[in-house]
């Protein structure tokens, strides 16, 4: 994944020579046309919903892609007039933040321990974690997870969702952190230990700064999963006020009044924007860390 994100320079002398040949240009044009077609397919649905959120009502009903009149009031309207919206938004933020923090802590500690503290049975644990990636755990375990939550009195509890949410990506997060810690030289950890630092301080001062990039990846993966989780939220909660925003959005039918199409689209943009913005921001950090690491290496 890391190398693919960098643009691979292709500017060898050979390539430059070939580019002057006739027919080569036509190939390049076709290539770019196909790529741009794909890019349009990716972006068009998102553009549609973004434009829908600033359409005036008659334009929304007519269905034309580009509106004759813009109306930017939908955002303010949905935030003020849909009573449950702030609650659902808060639920989303609360559940997602908790999930991301808890999973990251678990993954960092476990990844560090697996590589640098070498516990007995560590290899078996890694094998089980890997196996769980291939088994449809999320679906098959649903019945038992419901029973556990019922036993703990966590049915219809927003906080209760955090517990199963943490496990959704726990295995992959631990495995990512494990491979990140494998890049940290053992000598560095041992040097810190000899200097008298305990495992906690070694992890905090030596290990953690070196696995920042892996941490960013884990943040993104867990954020995206928890923010958009549907199955568990739908099954483990009953009331709309307990649910997260995307789940509520999935159950409303577009129509008139407070759930008119532009209002729905505005809610959608509000909910999807943090994810996409956070992602772009994190991606930049990711590149930065990558270059630093590459230069040092």
């Amino acid at each position: 994944m890391s190398t693919a994100l960098e643009a691979v320079p292709y500017d060898t002398t050979l390539a430059r020579l070939r580019r002057r040949r006739p027919g080569r240009n036509r190939g390049a044009i076709v290539r770019h046309a196909v790529i741009i077609l794909f890019m349009a397919i990716i972006l068009l649905p998102l553009a549609w919903v973004l434009i829908m959120s600033v359409k005036s009502l008659p334009d929304a009903m007519s269905g034309a892609f580009w509106p004759t009149q813009f109306d930017f009031t939908h955002y303010g309207y949905v935030l003020h007039n849909i009573a449950t919206l702030p609650i659902n938004l808060f639920n989303s933020i609360y559940v997602t933040t908790s999930t991301v923090i808890i999973t990251s802590i678990c993954a960092v500690l476990a990844g560090y321990a697996l590589v640098h503290l070498r516990p007995r049975g560590g290899g078996a644990l890694v094998a089980i974690l890997l196996m769980s990636l291939y088994f449809p755990v999320r679906v098959v375990s649903l019945i038992a997870v419901y029973q556990i939550q019922n036993f703990l009195g966590l049915i219809n509890s927003t906080s209760g969702l955090i517990l199963p949410y943490v496990t959704l990506n726990l295995a992959i997060s631990v495995l990512i952190m494990r491979s990140m810690f494998q890049l940290v030289p053992r000598e560095l950890i041992e040097a810190a230990t000899i200097d008298g630092a305990g495992p906690w301080r070694t992890l905090w001062t030596v290990g953690l700064p070196m696995v920042r990039n892996g941490l960013v990846v884990i943040f993104i993966v867990n954020f995206v999963t928890a923010w958009g989780e549907y199955l568990l939220c739908m099954t483990l909660t009953n009331d709309q006020v307990r649910r997260t925003m995307p789940v509520v959005l999935a159950s409303v039918e577009g129509g008139l009044g407070e759930w008119s199409w532009p209002n729905l689209a505005a809610v959608y943009v509000i909910v999807v924007a943090p994810a996409v913005i956070a992602f772009c921001f994190a991606q930049k950090l990711f590149f930065k860390g990558l270059n630093e690491g590459a230069l040092k290496g």
């Binding site: 808890i102 678990c106 500690l109 089980i128 375990s141 496990t167």
Partner: peptide
């Protein structure tokens, strides 16, 4: 080492291994 693994294990066993 096992102390470090404990938080991940609690969740992994509690919400994946045991449910299965």
């Amino acid at each position: 080492a096992w102390l470090f693994l404990l938080p991940a294990l609690v969740f992994f066993i509690g919400y994946q291994v045991y449910p299965i």
